[in-house]
Design a protein around this nucleic acid. Structure first.
Lengths: 157, 157
DNA sequence: ATCAATGCAAATAATTTGCAAAAAG
DNA sequence: CTTTTTGCAAATTATTTGCATTGAT
């Protein structure tokens, strides 16, 4: 997602707040600016840290109260990768069906999209009597580097 | 998974314990008997409750200590459906690549397998430089019944 | 006997919430 | 002014862990 795209997505979220008659406080602005200034995945804790760089008055509670608004708007997705915290992904506005490959060794996450995959999912679901609303595909994999060298550089966060 | 299949899977797990020189205690037996007596998904808390019906001395701690053994053996999978607890699925022994469709309204979970899907995932991953180790596809959907009647019978657990 | 496994209760850690004070509209 | 939002600190809740004891081999 390019920079102007992110700005447009942020705008959509501000409109979403407006439609719900929710106020745009300085803390919310800092959080939203943070979220839509990157296409990196983040945790609640990371978002708190980054938002505080813009506005040190942002509290953990406000971050946790804003995250459900972000996910409800559909512009940010919540993901559970089996860790004890959730990961948030701000890249769904332009790529609503993207999937993730996670390297088992270095935890690097690669995103990809596939129309063939989407079509196949719809076809299978339809045969079972369902209509796809959303989907999440996670592939755990080993990467070439791991196969060659035995481990990824990034290992050990 | 049929009853004899489940019995065979249980046997595999007991062998897994043996290979690791882990002891087969009465509590572990109750837990394992429970897990492989059904193909229902379950939570840690449900497993505790069911296992206690067989052996009331089973403690929550032992359930939580046994679950990692079950997942490590590959015979049970841990799944995160975005709830605040994990769900365990004992149906992977015979169907290691199965996927889930979750009805948005009644939370009913349908499992399915597809070789075409597996092949497509491998193909895409390979092009990106990864080798698939495992995959989890979750499809959130609305079911026919919901579309027709407006809601599923099961709604509200 | 030996060492793994247990139950208990306390600890952990992410997330949620009650409440009085502050700020948006 | 009125109502929402905030920060704080306490509460919640699934899961984990230390430890003395029990039980499998």
């Amino acid at each position: 997602m390019s920079e102007p795209d992110r700005a447009a997505t942020k705008e959509k979220f501000l409109q979403f707040l407006d439609q719900k008659n929710l106020r745009i406080t300085s803390q919310r602005r800092a959080i939203v600016d943070t979220v839509f200034s990157t296409d990196q995945h983040f945790t609640a804790e990371q978002l708190l840290e980054w938002a505080r760089e813009k506005d040190s008055s942002v509290s953990r509670a406000t971050v946790y109260r804003t995250l459900p608004l972000l996910t409800e708007s559909g512009l940010v997705h919540e993901m559970d990768f089996g860790k004890d915290y959730k990961i948030y992904d701000p890249n769904y506005a332009d790529h609503p069906n993207h999937n993730h490959i996670i390297c088992n060794d270095c935890d690097k996450i690669v995103e990809f999209e596939s129309e063939r995959l989407d079509a196949l999912e719809s076809e299978i679901s339809g045969k079972l009597g369902f209509e796809v609303e959303s989907q999440q595909l996670r592939i755990n994999a080993s990467c070439e580097e791991m196969k060659r060298v035995g481990a990824c550089k990034n290992k050990g966060e």
